[in-house]
Structures are given as structure tokens and as C-alpha cells.
């Protein structure tokens, strides 16, 4: 029985850290020797803070980025609150990447609708930055990004949002739940952006990530547009503690999200109770 300890993290360096909003912080992480993480868009890693613990965190950069990878972390638990206090040069433990992300090979030639609610933009950014990379962009059809945030104050990746808005080969639509001073754009939940989309129903896929409540409504809306279940991809949030399909916390019925997900084709999980 040759097997090695699967729980020991690798020690990595924080090379850049930047506060993004009140709760969210950006990290650029370098593995030993600048080795690539080797992830696919949508996968996650387990991040350890010395003396505190470990938490599952989405990778937010594309695998096309070499030498380091990025994460954006909302500080809501003991590990993520401790992470917020770290500085460039500090060390973190990393295990992973785990599970399955978006298979971009399957998306080639297709129009891609990305629907991000709040912090759901964090894992989806790894997909966005893959398909809008100048060297990759021509492999895909239209790129449509729908982004919903509570208010404009909670926008993530602000510089990039501006770039997406200004690029001719990206259709970017944004809405906020609540208008605050200085906002002149759309107000309303993210589903309000869907009815106006003109889609080539036979050649479109949608990738969805957001708070748990969002999925049901977004999926209903996309279906009523005429998209089929197998054209929809969702990234599901669960409590992925061990990352290796043992500890049980992320299980949805018979499925371990940390192994088969967090990205699923919706047709695969449609009948899975407790999934959406």
C-alpha cells in the first residue's frame, strides 16, 4: 500500500497582497521555485495559515499566468480573517488544485455567457482571463459577461471591469442591487440582465457562480431563454475541508463536490437533491 500523506501543505510565498474592498483581499502566490499550480479555471486550493487552520479558496487567475497564481478572499471565517492580516513576504500553506473546473477545450467555437453574482466573480475570473487572453480570444465566439453586485462599493477587480467594458470583443453588462451615490447604471438583481440578451441558442454555453440563492433564478431565466440544461455550467460552494473526498463535509447526496466539482454541468446535477 504505497501512499503518501495527502494533508501536508506546500509552503508558498505571498508576493503581492492588496485590499480590494472592506471584506475582500487579493493575493498573488508563488509556489516553490515559481512552479505553476497547474490548475484549470474554476478549481480550488486548500490554503493554510500557520497556527490557525485551513480553508478552501478558489483560484482566481488563469492557468495562462505563469510563475504565480491569484486568489481573492472574503474574510468571514477564522482562517480568512487571519489571511487578511498577512503581508507580502509572508508564507501560506497550499494543497491542490482540487476537483474539476471548466473544460475550456469544450467551449471552443462557442459563445460564452458568464454570470457572476458578487464574490462568484472570483472563480469565474479564472475562466474569463483564459478566454479573453489575446492569444486565446479567437478560439471562442462571443464573450458576454454579466456581473451583479450589492452596490458599486463591492465591485471586485475594478481595473479589469473597466477593461472588459472598453474592449470591443467583450460584451459586459453590470447591475447593482442597490444604488449608491455616483451610480448611473442598471439597478436590479442579476436576472434582470438576462431577458435582453440575444443568444444563438445552438451555440452558447453559460457559466454561473454566485450566492446559493442565485442559481435557481438564473437557471430558470436561462432556460426560459431557450438554453438547454447541458449548456449550463455551475460552480457550487460547499464546505470542502479535506479536498480529497474523505471528510464528508462537501457531499451532496452521493457526490463529493471537492472531487467531481466544484464546476458541474447542470444536466449532471439537475436531479441531485440538495444541489441547487
Amino acid at each position: 500500500m504505497e501512499a503518501k500523506n495527502i494533508y501536508v501543505p506546500e509552503v508558498a510565498d505571498i508576493i503581492r497582497i492588496e485590499r480590494m474592498t472592506e471584506l475582500e483581499t487579493f493575493y498573488d502566490i508563488k509556489l516553490p521555485g515559481g512552479r505553476d499550480l497547474g490548475h484549470e479555471p474554476g478549481q480550488f486550493v486548500e490554503v493554510s495559515v500557520f497556527g490557525i487552520g485551513e480553508a478552501p479558496i478558489s483560484v482566481s487567475s488563469s492557468h495562462l499566468k505563469k510563475g504565480s497564481f491569484e486568489m481573492v478572499v472574503r474574510s468571514v471565517g477564522n482562517v480568512t480573517q487571519a489571511m487578511q492580516k498577512l503581508k507580502a513576504g509572508d508564507k501560506l500553506g497550499i494543497r491542490g488544485p482540487f476537483g474539476h473546473g471548466f473544460k475550456t477545450k469544450d467551449f471552443e467555437g462557442k459563445d460564452i455567457v458568464i454570470i457572476a453574482g458578487g464574490i462568484g466573480l472570483v472563480p469565474l475570473r479564472s475562466l474569463i482571463n483564459t478566454i479573453i487572453d489575446p492569444a486565446e480570444r479567437k478560439k471562442y465566439g462571443r464573450v458576454i459577461i454579466l456581473y451583479g453586485s450589492k452596490t458599486k462599493e463591492e465591485f471586485l477587480f475594478r481595473n479589469e471591469l473597466e477593461t472588459w467594458e472598453s474592449r470591443n470583443d467583450i460584451e459586459y453588462h453590470v447591475t447593482v442591487d442597490r444604488k449608491t451615490s455616483g451610480w448611473n447604471g442598471n439597478v436590479g438583481v442579476i436576472t434582470t440582465l438576462i431577458p435582453d440578451l440575444k443568444l444563438d441558442l445552438h451555440n452558447t454555453i453559460a457559466a454561473v457562480c454566485g450566492p446559493p440563492i442565485m442559481y435557481k433564478f438564473v437557471i430558470l431565466s436561462l432556460r426560459s431563454k431557450g438554453l438547454k440544461d447541458n449548456q449550463l455550467y455551475v460552480s457550487l460552494e460547499r464546505k470542502m475541508k479535506c479536498g480529497v473526498g474523505k471528510c464528508g463535509h462537501c457531499q451532496i447526496n452521493n457526490i463529493y463536490v471537492c472531487q467531481e466539482g466544484p464546476v458541474f454541468n447542470y444536466a449532471y446535477i439537475e436531479d441531485l437533491k440538495e444541489a441547487i
Binding site: M1, A3, N5, G245, K246
Partner: peptide, 14 residues
């Protein structure tokens, strides 16, 4: 079976 299939868990298997 649980610790020996899929990702092998040496902490158990040992």
C-alpha cells in the same frame, strides 16, 4: 475501501 480508493489516505492505510 473509503480510504484506499480515489485519493489514497496514507494516514489511515499505514
Amino acid at each position: 475501501y473509503a480510504f484506499g480508493t480515489g485519493v489514497k489516505d496514507a494516514t489511515y492505510l499505514k
